[in-house]
Amino acid sequence: MIPDWLKEQEEYNAVPDRDGFLTRSILSLMSMLASFRTKTISYGSKYPAPLKLIVCLAMIFITSLARNMLIVCTVLAILLAHICFLKNEFLVRTISTSLAAALLSAVILIPAIFLGSPQSMLMVSTKVFVSVGLVGILASTTEWNKLTAGLAAFHIPDVFIFTLDITLKYIVILGNISMDMLNALRLRSIGHNNSKAQSMSGVLGVTFLKSRQMSEEMFQAMQCRGFEGEYRRNSND
């Protein structure tokens, strides 16, 4: 038996509300998480990570030092040859990030043309494209735990690498938690909701409290496995 109130025609129209900041926060969180999820290796994974890191650093250094367009163009040719062999998704991502960076710097440098140094615009934008592209290739051909292990070749303290590893894992966890809360906030605020902006601090505050709790639990788990406060990396990693 259907009750009478259920048969009545509803005439509720939600008042439109501004929630641009919610959409934008959710979108930037999503794109960040998406790039953390794609971990497949496309090309060149047979080389050790420290070597790749050093080569990448050296090429960026050469590009930055170069005063001659020919050197920059040679590095550009090497970079483009590498990009050609990337898988589609990595090709698109590398090209779009480095193109965006180059275009941004070209726009920033437009006034320099009128200030009497028109070469700066072409030179600096090309260099920015090359540097961002090199880092993009490094990121898309190297697993991230190998990349952090590669940092050990530069004699970076173990505590730092240990912290970096935890950070990389927990960014995904905390990102998922805060995105769930943002989505919940969005679903619950139908019509006009004045306190929506105030909930922003609540979402981040709860994320912080959760992170605190999770780090305590992780420490307890580590202690159960014999952690005594000193972190040593396995040398044959």
């Binding site: 641009g20 900041f21 934008r24 926060s25 930037s28 969180l29 960040m32 505590v159 240990f162 912290t163 970096l164 590893d165 935890i166 950070t167 990389l168 894992k169 927990y170 960014i171 966890i173 905390l174 990102g175 805060s178 902006a197 922003m200 979402v203 981040l204 994320t207 912080f208 992170s211 605190r212 999770m214 780090s215 305590e216 992780m218 420490f219 580590m222 202690q223 406060g229 972190y231």
Partner: peptide
């Protein structure tokens, strides 16, 4: 016991940078 929180704290700061403040 707070050493682990350094990493989680860094993750929190990274996630917090993704938020667009109204």
């Amino acid at each position: 016991e707070k050493m682990t929180f350094l990493g989680v704290g860094a993750a929190f700061s990274f996630v917090a940078m993704m938020f667009n403040i109204p």
